[in-house]
Design a protein around this nucleic acid. Structure first.
Lengths: 149, 149
DNA sequence: TTCATTGCAAAGCGTTTGCAGTCAC
DNA sequence: GTGACTGCAAACGCTTTGCAATGAA
């Protein structure tokens, strides 16, 4: 199944976002909705610069500062996930509203990103919570791999 | 069992490092050994700045550039592991020669780092290798958690 | 009207790089 | 002796910040 986002689902996300902004007393600026629109019409992982250039290309004027600011809000609203894939590289982001919880495999040769789900990760999480008497709020898991010959 | 490193084991690591440097045709400079010594007399995760200051405190003069350079070699030699814990924060490192393969839980309230081993991670890795026909070279796994009340 | 938000450019910050001097080999 | 290594400081690249101008409420 494709994760492609339809115009309809973009509308849903905008509604969720609008509600979130209202609840927090944040303003509903056109820039913020334009950024969400752009993010949700993208199926790939993206970085701030890519988003900035993509919007500029469409003659939509936003500053990088505003993109950073808006993404910060989207992270808090759980509408975007953040990744720190490589080592000093730029952060990568992905939309997350319709996405099933998943983790990633990073292909070292091609740079390709594979997503996968494995219930054993939840099982590990539960064990840890019990053993250490903690509440796990989130996790980050990446496998780095190469294609077999 | 403590992971505390004795003087004897520091000697072993230095030997391993010396052999590694020789094999690669790198020079055995006093700075490099001083850095290994410092790293292996530390049981915590550390960052470059911390290491720099700790050595300076002991009146051992090394530049940050040399620390970065040496750690790069130690990573290649598998004598040190690198972590990118927080989000844009500094990289953290830990000695790895005597350490059992382990992953980390990061306590969000106290900043404490808990290490754990779980065989299911290897199992997941094996599944992925089979499913996607790949060879997993490494992984990074962090759980972010809080203490239960 | 009012103050959160924006855009721009400057500042931050960890890390890398360039280069003259040094020292392991 | 010679070229890899070191230390310093300047450059880098991503991100954050300061501030005057703007516009959502």
């Amino acid at each position: 199944m494709s994760t492609e986002t339809t115009n309809k689902s973009i509308g849903i996300v905008k509604d969720v976002f609008a509600k979130y902004l209202e609840e927090r007393g944040h303003r509903k600026t056109p820039e913020r909705f334009a950024i969400v629109e752009e993010i949700y019409s993208t199926d790939e992982h993206f970085n701030v610069d890519w988003l900035y250039l993509k919007m500029k290309e469409k003659n939509y004027r936003v500053s990088r500062a505003t993109i950073y600011n808006t993404i910060e809000i989207l992270l808090a609203a759980k509408l975007v996930r953040k990744h720190q894939f490589g080592e000093g590289l730029q952060a990568l982001y992905e939309k997350s509203y319709f996405a099933k919880q998943h983790d990633h495999i990073l292909m070292l040769d091609s740079g390709e990103v594979i997503e996968f789900c494995d219930p054993r990760i939840q099982a590990i999480k539960s064990s840890l919570e019990e053993i250490f008497n903690i509440k796990v709020e989130s996790h980050s898991l990446y496998f780095y791999a190469r294609k077999n010959d």
